[in-house]
Amino acid sequence: MLNYRVLNYTFENLKEKHMTFEQVFDHILNFMRLNPNGNYKLMIGTDSQVQHDHTLFITGIVIQCEGKGVWACLQKNKVPRKITNLHEKISYETSLSESVFSMFTQERKDAMYEIVLPYVDRGASFTIEGHIDIGAGERNKTRVFINEMIARIESMGAQPKIKPDAFVASSYANRFTK
Score class of each variant (00 low, 15 high):
2 L>G: 03
3 N>S: 13
3 N>V: 08
5 R>S: 15
8 N>Y: 00
9 Y>Q: 14
9 Y>E: 14
10 T>K: 04
12 E>Y: 00
15 K>M: 10
29 L>N: 07
30 N>V: 01
34 L>S: 12
36 P>K: 12
38 G>S: 13
43 M>D: 01
44 I>G: 07
45 G>D: 10
47 D>N: 10
48 S>K: 05
49 Q>V: 07
51 Q>E: 12
53 D>Q: 03
53 D>I: 07
59 T>A: 07
59 T>I: 01
61 I>L: 09
63 I>P: 13
69 G>D: 01
69 G>Y: 02
72 A>P: 02
75 Q>S: 15
76 K>L: 02
77 N>T: 08
79 V>C: 04
81 R>Q: 10
84 T>D: 11
85 N>F: 08
86 L>Q: 13
95 S>E: 15
98 E>Q: 15
101 F>T: 11
107 E>W: 02
108 R>K: 15
110 D>R: 15
110 D>F: 07
111 A>I: 05
114 E>D: 15
116 V>A: 10
116 V>M: 05
117 L>Y: 12
119 Y>D: 09
121 D>L: 11
121 D>N: 12
124 A>F: 00
126 F>V: 01
126 F>N: 02
127 T>Q: 11
129 E>T: 01
129 E>P: 00
130 G>L: 01
130 G>M: 01
131 H>A: 06
133 D>A: 02
135 G>P: 04
136 A>F: 09
137 G>P: 02
141 K>W: 03
149 M>A: 13
149 M>Y: 08
149 M>S: 12
150 I>A: 04
151 A>P: 03
151 A>L: 12
156 M>Y: 08
158 A>H: 02
158 A>R: 00
159 Q>G: 04
161 K>N: 10
162 I>A: 04
162 I>H: 01
164 P>F: 03
167 F>Q: 14
167 F>E: 14
168 V>D: 01
176 F>V: 03
